Amino acid sequence: MSSRYTILPRLVEILAETEGCAPHELDYSLQEYIETDALVTLAAADHTDWQLTFQVPDHTVEIRGSGEILVDDTRYEQPEEVKNQTS
């Protein structure tokens, strides 16, 4: 995955969009529900054959090694510039 692509800001943006609020208005922190350092390490791995599922308030989150993020089965793909760099 590109060093310019960070999973955490994208995930927070997606969760905020799902909640209909700004990222700083979320009622929780990701660190309360997942070890964020481990997620960053996993997302930076060379292999893409993995997926991670966890819960945050009112939502199920699934992150795949392909860069896809799913929140309650709604799929969010990785940004196009990242796809082009990892192809």
Score class of each variant (00 low, 15 high):
residue 63 I to H: 01
residue 36 T to I: 06
residue 59 H to N: 14
residue 16 A to S: 07
residue 85 Q to I: 03
residue 10 R to T: 07
residue 77 E to K: 13
residue 52 L to W: 07
residue 60 T to N: 10
residue 62 E to P: 04
residue 49 D to E: 15
residue 18 T to S: 15
residue 83 K to P: 09
residue 60 T to H: 09
residue 24 H to I: 11
residue 82 V to P: 00
residue 60 T to A: 09
residue 29 S to I: 04
residue 39 L to A: 01
residue 26 L to H: 05
residue 71 V to C: 06
residue 65 G to I: 11
residue 78 Q to L: 15
residue 78 Q to V: 14
residue 11 L to Q: 05
residue 10 R to A: 09
residue 33 Y to G: 05
residue 75 R to F: 03
residue 41 T to D: 08
residue 29 S to A: 12
residue 4 R to N: 12
residue 53 T to W: 03
residue 80 E to S: 10
residue 85 Q to T: 01
residue 10 R to V: 07
residue 25 E to I: 05
residue 28 Y to W: 11
residue 86 T to Y: 13
residue 53 T to D: 08
residue 23 P to S: 02
residue 80 E to I: 14
residue 7 I to H: 05
residue 30 L to F: 05
residue 41 T to S: 10
residue 27 D to G: 15
residue 40 V to D: 02
residue 85 Q to D: 12
residue 19 E to P: 02
residue 58 D to K: 12
residue 26 L to S: 03
residue 35 E to I: 02
residue 72 D to G: 05
residue 36 T to M: 01
residue 4 R to A: 09
residue 17 E to A: 14
residue 26 L to E: 05
residue 16 A to F: 06
residue 62 E to Y: 06
residue 26 L to C: 00
residue 82 V to F: 06
residue 28 Y to K: 06
residue 85 Q to K: 10
residue 38 A to Y: 05
residue 11 L to A: 07
residue 4 R to E: 13
residue 8 L to Q: 03
residue 62 E to V: 14
residue 70 L to A: 15
residue 83 K to S: 11
residue 32 E to A: 15
residue 42 L to P: 02
residue 1 M to G: 11
residue 66 S to E: 06
residue 69 I to Y: 00
residue 2 S to C: 07
residue 85 Q to R: 11
residue 15 L to F: 04
residue 77 E to A: 14
residue 46 D to F: 00
residue 38 A to E: 09
residue 9 P to G: 00
